[in-house]
Every structure is written in C-alpha cells, then in structure tokens.
C-alpha cells in the first residue's frame, strides 16, 4: 500500500516537467505550428533558471526567468519560421542544437553548485488526509502550477474566444486570415507561450527534481513531451493525463526493480511510444487528428 502511495506521489513529480513542456507544445501545435525544439528550450530554461536562482537566492525568480529564457529561445524559432518562412521541422531541430550548445556555454562554472532550496508546498489540513494527502497535497508548488496550467489551457482553448481563434488558425490558416485574424502574430504568441512553458519545465528539473546543473541534463525529456502531445490528442486534459501515465510507467518501473521484481526494462521503456502510436491509429480511425494546418507555412499573399 505504501508503495502504491509512493508510486502515485512520485508519478506527479516525474509528470510535472513533461506536463509543463507538453502543455506549451499543445498550444503551439493547436495554432498549427510544429516546434521540435522543445528539448532545446527546456535546457535553456534549466540553465537560466538555475543561474538566476543561484545568483539571486530566489528560486521563484529563477522559475520566472527560466520561462523568459525558454521564451527568448523560442522567439528565434518564431522569427525563422513565421517571418522568414523556413521549414518548421528543420528549424526546430536546429533550435535544439542551438539550445544545447548555448546552455552548456552559459553553464560553465555552475557545475557542483547547489541552488537555493525550493519551499515545499504542503497544503495545510489536506496534507494530513491519509492516502490522498501524500499523493496530492504534499507536493511542491510547481506541481500545482502544472495542474493549474493544464486546466487553464483547457478552459482557454475550449471556452474562450481567443482560444477559438487560435484553433481556427491551426485548422485553416487561410480561412482565419480571410476572416481578418492576424495569423502570424497569433502563432508567434503561441510559440512564445510554448517556449515559456518548456523553460519552466526545464527549470523544474534543475531547481527541484534533481536539483543541480549538469550539461545536457534534460536528457531527452523534451522529446518525450513531443510524444505526449500526440498521446493526448492535442487536448490539454488528456495531455496532462498522459503525462501521469508516462511518469507512472517510470515510477512503476523503478519501484518494481527496487522491490526486486524482474521486469523487462527495455520493453517497458518503449511502451509509452507504442501506446502513443496506438492512440494515433485509433484517433485516425475515428477521424479526429492533428490540427489540419500543422507544420504548414503561412504567408498572407499566398
């Protein structure tokens, strides 16, 4: 029983950076842009947040600046793809390369430095509830932020007018343009939001989950976030749920190993991706899918 509680509590920690990055990317893709540079933006957030937190002593300021750092990097992508109309797949890959290089340069001298501790976010009273308390109410504040953000993005996309416009841009940018919406501006805003979220996710790893700075420390989490967006069928709540499943698989895997249960680690490690493909197949069979304009460049005169 205790192990189950641990797995469940742990699941949220593993899921948080994934959720943050994936929610951001969901908005980006819903606006019709495919930014494969999530890994690069995350690692930028990780180092910027770390540097600011260490130098200012404030982890909260670190998080804020991490979001700014991720956003700053994403704006390069926004310029290249939205203004200069370069291919999004290639630009996203270049962004990852760029981010990994820049973060490693910035991070020289931060190895072995300990960041200021992040305050634990136990919620009074609720934290003492048996079972649910440790799982839900003894987490750090960023976990709650990730959950809140997921819900907020869901509400934004589903119920707000701006969300409707954003989706319209993603589904058919020509029609949206004809209706007088500023396609490029909306997309740049979405890309910036995605960058900020990815930066936050990266800083969560360097400031809370590990916490330390090491070169290349995101180690592929940004790529998993990309898979997650698909897994969640571009729907924020499902993306959040997917993050819990992905994080949960990791938690279960490690816990079973530690408990001495022989498990096929490699099979389990590839299962999220196989499940994601399965989800894609099911979705396409029932004819719902990716935003129709995903990855296609837009120019007003064309």
């Amino acid at each position: 029983m205790e192990m189950l509680i641990n797995i469940a509590a742990f699941m949220f920690v593993a899921a948080t950076p994934l959720t943050l990055a994936a929610i951001g990317e969901t908005v980006v893709e819903r606006a019709g842009v495919l930014n494969l540079g999530v890994e690069g933006m995350m690692i930028m957030g990780a180092i910027v947040g770390f540097m600011v937190a260490v130098n200012s002593g404030s982890p909260v300021l670190g998080l804020v600046m991490a979001a700014a750092g991720g956003m700053g990097l994403s704006l390069i992508f926004a310029f290249v793809t939205q203004v200069a109309l370069a291919n999004q797949v290639a630009s996203g890959l270049a962004l990852t390369l760029f981010g990994l290089g820049l973060s490693a340069l910035l991070g020289q001298g931060y190895q072995g430095v300990k960041p200021p501790a992040f305050p634990q976010g136990d919620i009074p009273l609720l934290a003492d509830i048996p079972v649910l308390g440790p799982i839900l109410f003894q987490q750090d504040p960023v976990v709650y932020l990730a959950i809140a953000l997921t819900v907020a993005v869901f509400v934004f996309l589903r119920f707000s007018r701006a969300g409707l416009v954003l989706r319209a841009v993603g589904e058919n940018h020509d029609a949206a343009h004809a209706l007088g919406y500023k396609v490029v501006r909306i997309r740049i805003a979405a890309i910036a939001f995605g960058g900020a979220c990815a930066g936050l996710g990266g800083a969560y790893i360097s400031l809370i989950r590990v916490p330390q700075w090491t070169e290349g420390m995101t180690a592929g989490i940004g790529w998993i976030a990309l898979a997650l967006v698909v897994f969640g069928a571009w729907r924020p709540l499902l993306v959040g749920l997917g993050a819990c499943i992905f994080g949960g698989i990791e938690a279960v895997q490690l816990n079973l190993q530690a408990a001495g249960v022989a498990i096929p680690v490699s099979l389990l490690a590839m299962s999220p991706y196989l499940i994601t493909i399965l989800v894609l197949v099911i979705m396409s069979a029932v004819r719902t899918g990716a935003p129709a304009s995903l990855g296609r460049p837009f120019h007003a005169s064309s």
């Binding site: 641990n6 742990f10 920690v13 593993a14 950076p17 790893i205 989950r209 590990v210 330390q212 090491t214 290349g216 420390m217 995101t218 180690a219 592929g220 989490i221 990791e250 938690a251 490690l254 816990n255 530690a258």
Partner: peptide
C-alpha cells in the same frame, strides 16, 4: 549519465 533518472532512482530507493 541522466541526472533526472538517477535522481528518480535514488528517490524510489
């Protein structure tokens, strides 16, 4: 070398 995964493994243990 994968700091996040190593940290996770330590926490689970």
């Amino acid at each position: 070398f994968d700091p996040a995964k190593e940290a996770d493994a330590a926490k689970v243990l």
